[in-house]
Lab assay of single mutants.
Amino acid sequence: MKVIFLKDVKGMGKKGEIKNVADGYANNFLFKQGLAIEATPANLKALE
């Protein structure tokens, strides 16, 4: 799943980066902790 990092995550990515991560990792950790959001077309447009 493609995500946009909202904060730096050690060993994974930096704020503003777009990366592919495992679905479970994104849903169970990154999204719940507020560290990333899904890289949807609307979210990608908002990032620009």
Rank of each mutant, 00 (worst) to 15 (best):
A36M: 03
Y25S: 08
I37Y: 04
Q33K: 07
L35C: 05
K7A: 12
N28W: 11
Y25W: 12
A26K: 06
D23F: 12
V9A: 04
L35T: 06
L35R: 03
N27C: 14
E17K: 01
E48L: 09
E17T: 10
K7S: 10
M12L: 14
G16K: 03
A36C: 05
G16Y: 07
V3F: 01
N27Q: 14
G24H: 13
T40I: 05
P41M: 11
Y25A: 08
F31W: 02
A26D: 09
L44H: 03
E38M: 08
K19C: 10
L6C: 07
I4Y: 08
E38W: 07
N20L: 13
G24V: 08
F29S: 05
A46P: 04
N20G: 07
G11K: 06
L35D: 03
F29Y: 13
G13N: 00
I18V: 11
K15W: 03
M12F: 14
K2R: 11
L35Q: 05
K45P: 15
I18R: 02
K10T: 15
E38N: 04
I4H: 02
A46Y: 13
A46M: 15
K10V: 13
Y25G: 06
E17C: 07
A22V: 10
F29G: 04
Y25C: 00
Y25R: 05
V3Q: 00
D23Y: 15
K14R: 14
L47R: 03
E38I: 06
K2E: 13
L6Y: 01
V21Q: 02
A39N: 02
G13K: 00
M12Q: 11
F31D: 01
A42W: 03
K45M: 11
N43Y: 03
M12H: 12
L47Y: 14
N43K: 02
V21G: 00
F31V: 08
K10M: 12
L30R: 01
K7D: 10
K15R: 10
V21K: 01
A22R: 10
Q33H: 15
G34Q: 06
K7I: 11
T40G: 03
L35Y: 09
F31L: 11
A46L: 14
A26Y: 13
F29R: 09
A26V: 09
P41E: 13
K2F: 12
A46H: 14
D8P: 07
L6N: 01
A36Q: 01
M1A: 05
L47W: 13
T40V: 04
A42R: 05
A39P: 02
A42Q: 12
A22W: 08
D23K: 15
V21I: 13
I18G: 01
K19W: 09
G24Y: 08
A46R: 13
E17N: 01
A36L: 04
V3A: 01
A26H: 07
A46W: 14
G24I: 15
N27R: 14
T40A: 04
N27S: 12
D23N: 14
K19D: 00
L44I: 15
A46V: 13
T40R: 04
G34P: 01
K15A: 12
G34R: 06
G11E: 07
A36V: 10
N43P: 03
A36H: 00
P41Y: 11
I4V: 09
T40S: 11
K19G: 09
D8I: 04
E38Y: 08
I18D: 01
K10S: 10
E38K: 09
K19P: 00
E48V: 10
L35W: 10
F5N: 01
A46G: 12
A39S: 05
K14H: 11
K32H: 07
L6E: 01
T40N: 11
N20W: 12
L6T: 06
P41L: 08
N27D: 10
A22T: 08
N43A: 11
G13C: 06
Y25H: 10
K7R: 13
G24C: 14
G24M: 12
G24E: 15
L44T: 05
G24N: 12
G34A: 07
D8K: 04
M12S: 06
K14I: 11
Q33R: 14
E38P: 11
K45C: 11
P41K: 12
K19N: 04
K15G: 04
L30N: 01
G16M: 04
I37C: 08
K45D: 15
K2A: 13
D23C: 15
K15H: 06
I4F: 09
L35N: 02
K10A: 14
K15D: 03
G13F: 07
A36I: 05
E17H: 03
N28L: 10
M1D: 01
V9H: 04
D23S: 13
G34F: 08
P41Q: 11
